[in-house]
């Protein structure tokens, strides 16, 4: 079966698109899927670093489009997974306009027969880079954080994506969820966010310092079997493969009297 291509997008910057791409890509490879992740954030590439392949790049996507390298020369293989996980890096210094929707679509189509999933890490915003990423996608994963400003951008992006009539409908990932804030009533619940955006929920990721540690180690958090964020990404991946998989429960217990007492102290 040819690969399913999914764009990971958000509108607002810094909400966790690249982290999501790295972790979902890695988690899929961990369970035996063949995955190609493509960094479409020209000039600000960092998917390579998050996934831990930053030091092995020889060519990038712009080299491919401009004919300096073949597609296969530019693919960086992850030896941790017997080459099941592969990265097509973004260019660091390239004119933003060298990529076009048509060239991205062409690259994705050329890769379809060799993979199960192709994940496209979309740059922030709704300009050229966004349109490029959408052109190559069969479906979209919308990443948002619980703040209203991020929700508003996500809503805008969902509206634009719906106009593309992709074969797979968009789904939502709520990132940086804070159980304590939800319990205290100072943050929307995950369900309320999905309702507000009128989008099916793929999953959520808790706000977790393990993500930052993982970033620094060049090892996506899904490798960390004890981390909450890692568990969330595994749940997202499982739900991607089988929508019947139940959502990981979020523990939003009210702090106990003693916890409150000690926190105040």
């Amino acid at each position: 079966m040819p690969a399913i291509s999914l764009v990971i997008t958000s509108g607002k910057g810094g909400v966790g698109k690249t982290t999501a791409t790295a972790n979902i890509g890695t988690a899929l490879a961990m369970i035996g899927k063949r995955v190609c992740v493509i960094d479409l954030d020209l000039g600000l590439r960092n998917l390579d670093i998050m996934i831990g392949l930053g030091n092995r790049i020889l060519y990038d996507i712009v080299d491919v489009v401009q004919g300096r390298a073949t597609l296969h020369q530019a693919l960086v293989k992850d030896t941790r997974f017997e080459d099941r996980l592969v990265l097509l890096p973004a260019a660091q210094n390239a004119d933003k306009n060298v990529l076009t929707p048509a060239s991205v679509r062409q690259i994705v189509d050329a890769l379809r027969s060799e993979f199960d999933y192709i994940l496209l890490d979309c740059p922030a915003g709704i300009e050229q880079g966004f349109r490029n990423a959408l052109a190559g996608a069969d479906g979209a994963l919308i990443v948002t954080t619980p703040e209203l400003s991020a929700l508003s951008d996500a809503d805008r992006v969902i509206g634009l994506i719906e106009a593309y009539h992709m074969p797979i409908g968009p789904r939502l990932i709520v990132n940086r969820v804070q159980a304590a804030m939800i319990a205290a009533g100072t943050s929307l619940t995950v369900a309320a966010i999905a309702h507000r955006l009128a989008l099916p929920l793929l999953g959520y990721v808790v706000d977790d310092n393990a993500i930052i540690t993982a970033d620094n180690n060049g090892e996506p958090v899904v490798f960390d079997t004890h981390s909450k964020a890692g568990a969330c990404y595994h749940n997202i991946t499982d739900r991607l493969l089988d929508p019947q998989t139940p959502l990981l429960p979020l523990i939003t217990k009210q702090p106990t009297f003693w916890q409150k007492l000690f926190r105040r102290a």
Binding site: D153, D155, R196
Partner: peptide
């Protein structure tokens, strides 16, 4: 339907709209 942020829907006469009109729509 849903009218999302940045979207605008126009109707020629009266309209009964059932759904959600999001902030920014």
């Amino acid at each position: 339907g849903v009218i999302r942020s940045g979207q605008e829907r126009q109707f020629d006469g009266d309209v009964l709209f059932i759904g959600a009109l999001h902030h920014g729509g």
